[in-house]
């Protein structure tokens, strides 16, 4: 298996979401490791703006040809925007998981919840434990 890219500028969950906080908004996507496991993403069921999220509860769904995966909210808050470009090109999640493949943004989150997330080094160590 290829070695997944893990970016230092954001935090991660055990369910392989990343979150990057920029001012009032927290941008969310799935990690390179997750997109590789999923294989070709064919559809993203985007959350509606205004949807209330709870940390580590399902926020939306990502589909590949052979699987369906929940995307869990890394932080509690409200969906402020979803990446509508994914409606036309879901493959961005595979091609650029940390950039064009972002899925939604959260506002009104509680900063203290970031304590429940992993930084890049911790996440790297975490996925190393998953390999069989």
């Amino acid at each position: 298996m290829r070695i997944p890219t893990i970016k230092d500028d954001r935090l991660y969950t055990k369910e392989h979401e990343w979150v990057k906080i920029e001012g009032d908004a927290a941008m969310v996507g799935i990690s390179d490791y997750a997109q590789d496991l999923l294989t070709d993403v064919v559809f993203v069921e985007l959350p509606k703006a205004g949807k209330a999220l709870e940390q580590f509860k399902p926020a939306c769904v990502v589909e590949s040809v052979k699987s369906v995966s929940d995307v869990y909210a890394p932080l509690s808050g409200t969906v402020s925007e979803a990446n509508s470009a994914l409606e036309k090109s879901p493959e961005a999640i595979n091609g650029d998981p940390y950039g064009a493949g972002w899925i939604f943004k959260i506002t009104g989150f509680k900063t203290e919840e970031t304590a429940n997330l992993m930084d890049a080094a911790a996440y790297k160590a975490f996925i190393a434990t998953l390999k069989h």
Binding site: V42, F43, V61, E63, S64, V65, K66, S67, V68
Partner: peptide, 12 residues
């Protein structure tokens, strides 16, 4: 669009 179906989506 098989990801809609029970053999993949199961309880969802």
């Amino acid at each position: 669009l098989q990801a809609r179906e029970q053999h993949i989506r199961r309880e969802k």
